[in-house]
Design a protein around this nucleic acid. Structure first.
Lengths: 339, 339
DNA sequence: GCCGATCGCTAATTCGTATTAGCACCCTTG
DNA sequence: CAAGGGTGCTAATACGAATTAGCGATCGGC
């Protein structure tokens, strides 16, 4: 393949052709105007014209090895991205990440090679290539606590997309302000007259889930609330468990869809008999024509800001922890309770 | 930031701790069982246990510099990906690419940093980082002829997603078999009784457009055809130009949507008054509830196969040129012409 | 006409890993 | 006991660019 014949051009080649040393070539390429060791115009032009003729471009690998950074940012996704169910959920984050990286002139290294172990991807493994990047963005609902701690202790610059608090040290993140969003929706339901509320979801574990639950409880205040876990059977069981409830807040969009289908199947009407509020975008595929009341996660903006925060961090800036507000969706699945 | 204190661990450190030389560490890490220079079990175990304790992982950059390849594949998109209009079109390719890369244990380098010059991205520029990858996949409707030729002449391994014939040499690609797909649709229209056909689109320039036109003409045979170029005004002008035509084949999905909207606005019905066939997926955002007759580009599969072809190429395999069949969509916008 | 200060450039080293050549030792064998 | 052949390891070097230290030549000042 890459025979001697097709060897790529190096600074040595340029140097030889221009009749100077490799050092000079490097200096011509790197000395910003106004630097101390300057090369006279004539020499500089000679070198530059050889570079232009040959079409030389510096080997980014060698460059990286020598000066300890390139403009490459890693993107690591914890959950396995395939089958593409979750891919759809993560795509908007990626779009925001790409958009910002493009603006900043950075390339992205998608760490797709990572092996899946116990249903979860691992950063640290035999052929870890994370360090090829200057820093990285971590995506995923639940990051591995130990790996996070290790990144922190090794001083590797990273930013988590999603709040993270369990790394035995402060973790830079750009997350979602679930609490206020859920709380606002609960308060709206109460303002409409609801008093029998339920939460459908885990409400614990990952920060994103716990944060929703906190908002839910804050909004509910003194009202008694019911907590239905999606692990307990399917939509039929959930709906049974919701007997007497007038409004349910569904952590997972796809669960809301399943619940509505079940309700329709029993001849119930939404929102007349039961109001349903969604607390985020589908992380599992969900087909529906219904315009749910709830909120959207500002995924694209989160991606954008994660890259911003990361690059600032790389420039020696402060460790940032930031929560972005959700966009409320009015929808048609929340109304006052039936009399 | 990366002070001496937080310097990352190297093979030298491991060597010192294990009381051996750096060479030995490298050998322990790289000697596959059954190699000639073998390290006795005792030494090997000692080194490995130090590695385990320290959590050492090899620096992928240095590795790459030394042995001339890593498992990183570049992904280059010619059209600017933002605003996200086009991002939606390219996403399925990426999903296929990622899926296959994951299976093969490769990481992906998204060349997002590329500057946009004259509305088009350029591979070759000052800080080109393409060569960090072992090879790359090129996406985009129209690739730059000169850059393609240069890649070929520099012997850089790449695969184009989409047929490409203008590089002054054979270009490996995984493309779409537009010709047969368009031809099949035209033949179906003729079988339904249509004799007054029109093509709405450029029909030339990029291979993907020219290939559609070839299929269209083959299908039309001796029938006279009308060619309406989308550059000539908007939907109103197009529809005027389609006077007397009973079926129109729209190169661009979004144009078909605009055309239908215009037709409805004039009280025409589709397909009763005018059949409309789409020739691919929207490259521009298009909102519609209509179930168009036409075909889908096997984008995900193209992405998958592009990576396969690329990796084979990297292993010294042959230069592959392959066209994938389209998936025909029956839809509801093609029927026999009105009497 | 000598000293010191530029100017213009280069040799040498560094980054971390892979690889090649080969050294020192022990173990046979004749 | 010398020659021959492993075994177990290491020194040296390569990869390609960036950077530091510094050399030789020219120039200015007195």
């Amino acid at each position: 393949m890459s025979d001697a014949a097709s060897r790529r051009i190096t600074q040595r080649d340029i140097a030889r052709l221009a009749g100077v040393s490799q050092t000079t070539v490097s200096l011509v390429l790197n000395n910003r105007p106004g630097d101390e060791t300057r090369i006279p115009r004539e020499t500089r032009d000679r070198v530059l014209s050889v570079i232009r003729e040959t079409g030389y471009v510096a080997d980014p690998v060698a460059r990286r090895l020598a000066d300890r950074h390139n403009r490459i940012l890693g993107v690591f996704t914890y959950e396995p991205v395939f089958p593409s169910a979750t891919a759809d959920f993560y795509h908007p984050f990626l779009v925001g990440i790409e958009e910002c990286a493009e603006r900043l002139g950075c390339d992205l290294l998608l760490l797709t090679s990572v092996p899946v172990i116990d249903g979860r991807r691992r950063i640290y493994h035999e052929a870890n290539r994370l360090r090829l990047a200057d820093g990285c963005v971590l995506l995923g609902r639940s990051l591995d606590r130990d790996e996070l701690a290790r990144l922190v202790s090794e001083n590797f610059p990273f930013v988590s997309v999603g709040r993270r608090d369990d790394a035995g040290g402060p973790v830079p993140y750009v997350g979602t302000a679930y609490g206020p969003a859920v709380r606002a929706l609960v308060e709206r339901a109460r303002a409409l007259g609801h008093t029998r509320l339920a939460y459908l979801g885990h409400g614990e574990g990952a920060e994103s889930l716990a944060d929703r639950m906190v908002g839910f409880r804050e909004g509910a205040g003194d009202l008694p609330v019911r907590h239905v876990r999606p692990t307990a059977g399917g939509p039929a069981e959930w709906l049974d468990a919701l007997e007497g409830v007038t409004v349910v807040f569904a952590e997972e969009y796809a669960d809301a869809v399943a619940l509505v289908d079940e309700a329709f199947g029993r001849g119930l009407s939404v929102p007349a008999d039961l109001s349903i509020v969604t607390l985020g975008d589908p992380t599992r595929p969900a087909r529906t024509d219904i315009d749910f009341t709830g909120f959207r996660i500002p995924r694209r903006e989160m991606g954008r800001q994660a890259i911003q925060v990361l690059t600032r961090l790389l420039e020696g800036g402060p460790l940032v922890q930031r929560l972005l507000p959700c966009e409320l969706v009015v929808g048609s699945t929340l109304s006052g309770p039936a009399a």
